[in-house]
Design a protein around this nucleic acid. Structure first.
Length: 274
DNA sequence: GTGCTTGTTGGCCA
DNA sequence: GTGGCCAACAAGCA
């Protein structure tokens, strides 16, 4: 589920519940696949008694920093979510990691377990964090960089290219469709076939959707929406892409759903032409 | 039972 | 070596 702005929503949810707090206890299921490649016992040892310091979201990842040089990385995969539950909350089947403060239980749950938890100990953030591609909302994500990347991936459909995290960090299936729909580009267009003007529109829409999604889904400033989709307008493709008989919010034409680049893709046929 | 699913990775092949 | 495609991972839902 979670892409760019949703990840920030979940980060904020944990951050608000844990601000200024110490972790009193850590509960986890060591055998859960989300701990693949890490040492769950080390996480438990390091975080018990540690104070939450700060956190960040980048692309589809989150990094939570604790006292004692402990860094907890979270990737939500396809079905992961972070929740803040009251003390006394009874764990559900897929709650794999729980950090308890004096006020809340911070829960990471993930039924499909494509998500993952990473842990690092040291004075500086780990390599798996610092190597994430420059954010779409940063100056490094400029139209030249996008054009160069599209040229290198010239023979791949543009939809598949937008899903490549090395250049479009945080973009997932629904955001890619939303961007192409706004940019009026057919998802099957080969990346190399885009004219300079089209590349510019695509670049601008990437930034626009990221900004818009961030404000709408994760909320501005300290405000956190009650749930992920609370404020997403009906004018976005988002609401219509999975509906049978769904129609384009701009043209009213029936939407098309088909696999492109190995992923189910939705587009508006009159608006997005090959 | 069947056929999906907002993600990532590694193996295969041109 | 590079780039593109696809299965696999796992569980729930219609």
């Amino acid at each position: 589920m979670p892409e760019f702005a949703e990840v920030e929503f979940f980060r904020k949810r944990w951050a608000q519940a844990t601000a200024g707090q110490r972790i009193r206890s850590v509960e986890l299921h060591p055998a859960a696949k989300i701990f693949r490649g890490t040492n769950p016992a080390a996480i438990k040892r390091a975080l018990t008694g540690a104070k939450y310091l700060s956190s960040e979201a980048q692309a589809k990842q989150m990094l939570f920093r604790f006292s004692g040089g402990s860094w907890l990385g979270v990737h939500l995969g396809m079905s992961g979510e972070l929740r803040a539950e009251p003390i006394g909350y009874t764990l559900l089947k897929h709650d794999h990691l729980v950090l308890a403060t004096a006020k809340h239980q911070l829960v990471f749950s993930d039924p499909r377990m494509f998500g993952r938890v990473q842990f690092h100990h040291g004075p500086t953030p780990p390599a798996w964090w610092t190597k994430i591609a420059p954010p779409i909302l940063s100056p490094e994500f400029n139209v030249e960089a996008v054009a160069a990347f599209l040229k290198r991936r010239a023979r791949a459909p543009i939809k598949a290219v937008l899903l490549m995290q090395e250049r479009f960090p945080g973009i997932g299936n629904w955001m890619a469709d939303e961007i192409l729909w706004r940019a009026a580009l057919h998802p099957k267009r080969l990346a190399g076939s885009l004219q300079p003007a089209e590349v510019k529109i695509l670049w601008r829409e990437c930034r626009h959707i990221c900004r818009l999604a961030l404000d709408t889904i994760a909320g501005r400033g300290n405000y956190l929406p009650p749930d992920l989709n609370a404020h997403i307008p009906r004018t976005w493709l988002f609401w219509h892409r999975w509906e049978d008989g769904g129609r384009c919010p701009r043209t009213g034409v029936l939407l098309v759903r088909e696999e492109v680049g190995g992923r189910t893709t939705c587009w508006s046929p009159r608006r997005q032409n090959l």
